[in-house]
């Protein structure tokens, strides 16, 4: 598994296909987050924007190998394990990106509530932001796993499905990502720091189920 992870990580880094989502994420944060804004609001925005980026990263990893090369890797390691490595590398990349963004946003934001009347401690606020980002990265990974190879193979279906899935994952009632972001925004209004651990757990379950389904289908839909 270590060899597979190294191979997939090297593929992702070398392919430079990670650049567009990272640049887009940075641009999105540059427009939406300004220094001196309330920290929890900005962290909610940071986490929400990470969800489509995580789904996009899964798409990049799942399509990085041409089918012939994927067959070679699959024969050597098992197609399910090879695909699991793809998804894990994408999740790790989203995790690194989300962590970096959360740290920067926590540092530049004002440690206050939305109305700037109650102080919000930056360190626990940053931790809450990390949890929300994790929930969004996990749910985005689930969306990416369900809307790419082996479930959807033609880009004409996969890309719209991915975008729609990412949007729904952010707005549908009961979505762990929405729950985590809402907790941050509500906390900002009240001047309290939430601990969105339950959404993280739910998002992790979604990601595990989606990834298991995708890996199980690697040998069924060639």
């Amino acid at each position: 598994m270590t060899a597979l992870l190294r191979y997939q990580a090297a593929l992702l880094v070398r392919s430079q296909r990670w650049l567009p989502p990272v640049i887009l994420y940075a641009a999105f944060l540059g427009v939406g987050v300004q220094s001196g804004q309330p920290v929890l609001d900005s962290l909610g925005y940071t986490a929400a924007a990470l969800l489509p980026v995580a789904a996009w990263l899964v798409r990049i990893c799942a399509t990085n190998e041409p089918p012939a090369a994927r067959s070679c890797t699959g024969a050597a390691a098992g197609p399910g394990r090879a695909h699991l490595a793809c998804v894990l590398v994408a999740l790790a990349a989203a995790g690194v990106l989300g962590t970096a963004a959360t740290v920067i946003v926590t540092i530049i934001s004002a440690p206050t509530s939305t109305a700037h009347d109650i102080r919000v401690e930056p360190l626990p606020a940053g931790a809450a932001g990390l949890l929300a980002a994790l929930a969004c990265a996990l749910l985005g990974t689930a969306v990416g796993a369900l809307t790419n190879w082996p479930l959807l193979r033609s880009p004409g279906r996969a890309v719209p499905a991915l975008l729609l899935g990412a949007l729904l994952a952010l707005v549908v009632v009961g979505s762990p990502a929405r729950a985590a972001i809402t907790a941050l925004v509500d906390g900002s209004q009240r001047g309290t720091i939430p601990v969105p651990a339950l959404p993280v757990l739910a998002a992790a379950l979604c990601a595990a189920a989606a990834t298991a389904l995708a890996c199980a289908l690697t040998t069924r839909r060639a």
């Binding site: 270590t2 191979y7 593929l11 392919s15 012939a68 090369a69």
Partner: peptide, 19 residues
């Protein structure tokens, strides 16, 4: 084997050998 992979031949084979 359309090799649209961002590696040199030796790098790819080293990765695959490990796999």
């Amino acid at each position: 084997f359309p090799a649209a992979l961002p590696f040199t031949a030796a790098e790819y084979l080293t990765h695959l050998g490990a796999v």
